[in-house]
Design a protein around this nucleic acid. Structure first.
Lengths: 165, 165
DNA sequence: GTTATTGCAAACCATTTGCAAGTGT
DNA sequence: ACACTTGCAAATGGTTTGCAATAAC
C-alpha cells in the first residue's frame, strides 16, 4: 500500500547529511555514505539489523560494522533525517523523516504490517488541542491498532453458513 | 494537570484481576495483591523500577521480587488492565487501562512530563480514517511532542531587553 | 598532522528464564 | 496433593562503549 507520496527536496540525503555533519565539525566517511545509500534507497521501515544485513549483502564487500551502524543511526536521528516509529520484537524501528510528507500509521495486529497514511484532519485536530493547552507542538505520532483490510477479509470457506450461529 | 476523569467501574482492580486469573486457572497470590494495591493507588504512569521501589518501601516489609514484578506486569497487560504508553530511558512505561477513560498524551521535550488529555475529535478522525481504509480498529495511540506551557513560559529575568537582539 | 571515526570485543542494562523451594486452591 | 508461583542467580539480547588502529579534513 503506497499512500504517502514523496516530496520535492532540494538536495539528496547524502548532501543533506553532509550539511549537518559540517555544522558539527563531523566528517562524511565512506561508512556513512554507504549507510545513507542503503537506507535511503527505498522508503521502507527498518531497524539496526535490517541495515547491518543490507550492508553486508553488498557485492563490493564494503560493509559497515555493527557499532558503526548504531552510531550512524543516532547521527541521522539527530540530523532529523530519520525517526523512531515503533518498537517491534524488542527493536527500535525507524523510518525516513526526510523527503517524505508527514504521515501516521496503522499497525495490523495480525500481520504486523505498518501501513502509512496521511490525513490533514489529524494534524488540524492535534494543532487545535495543543493550542488549547498552551503546548508548543514540534510533531506528533499517531498509531492506530487493529486488523487491516487484508487480514480481516473473511477466509474462503465452503460452509459459510456455519459462521452465522 | 488533571484532565482525564475517572470512570465508574463495577468492581475494584483486585476483583477485576481475580476475575481474569480465575478464567485462566491462575492464582491470586499475596504478591499479586500487593502489586495491584500499589499500582492502582494512584493514576500515575509507572515502569518496572517504580513498582519495585514502591513495594520495597512498604512498612510491612512485604515486598515483591524483581522477577515477579515483571511477571505481574505482563499478566496485568494481558488482563487489559494496564498498557504500555511509551518508552523512556530504555524502559517501558505503563499506565492504567482500567477505570479511566481513553485519552491521549502530550510529551514535553524539556521536562519529559506526560500530560494526558481527552478529545473526542481525535477518536472521530481516527475512526473515519480507519473506515476509509477498511481497517478494523481496536485502539489508537496519539503522542504529541513539543514543549509544555510551563516550560515554554519565558523565564523571569531582570534585563528582558537583552533578549531582543 | 590533527582529530574524528572505525571495528572489535567487552560492558551495559532492562527484561527473561531455569530451577528448587514455597503456597493457593 | 497438585499445580501454579516465587526468588534467586544466571542468561539473553539489543545497544553502548573503551581503545588502538585508521582515515577525513
Amino acid at each position: 500500500m503506497k499512500e504517502v507520496s514523496s516530496v520535492d527536496v532540494a538536495i539528496s540525503p547524502i548532501e543533506k547529511f553532509q550539511e549537518y555533519l559540517a555544522t558539527r565539525g563531523k566528517r562524511l566517511t565512506r561508512e556513512r555514505m554507504i549507510f545513507v545509500e542503503e537506507v535511503f534507497a527505498d522508503h521502507e521501515h527498518f531497524d539496526a539489523d535490517t541495515v547491518i544485513e543490507r550492508v553486508s549483502r553488498r557485492k563490493d564487500g564494503r560493509s559497515v560494522s555493527r557499532s558503526t551502524v548504531y552510531r550512524v543511526l543516532s547521527l541521522l536521528e539527530e540530523a532529523g533525517m530519520i525517526r523512531k516509529v515503533a518498537r517491534q520484537n524488542d527493536r527500535d524501528v525507524y523510518e525516513h523523516d526526510y523527503g517524505y510528507a508527514q504521515h501516521d500509521h496503522f499497525i495490523c495486529e495480525k500481520c504486523g504490517d505498518l501501513i502509512e497514511f496521511s490525513n490533514d484532519s489529524v494534524r488540524e485536530v492535534v494543532e487545535q488541542i495543543a493550542a488549547e493547552h498552551g503546548f508548543r507542538l514540534s510533531h506528533h505520532r499517531l498509531e492506530a491498532h487493529g486488523v487491516c483490510a487484508k487480514c480481516s477479509a473473511p477466509p474462503q470457506r465452503r460452509h459459510r453458513k456455519l459462521d452465522m450461529i
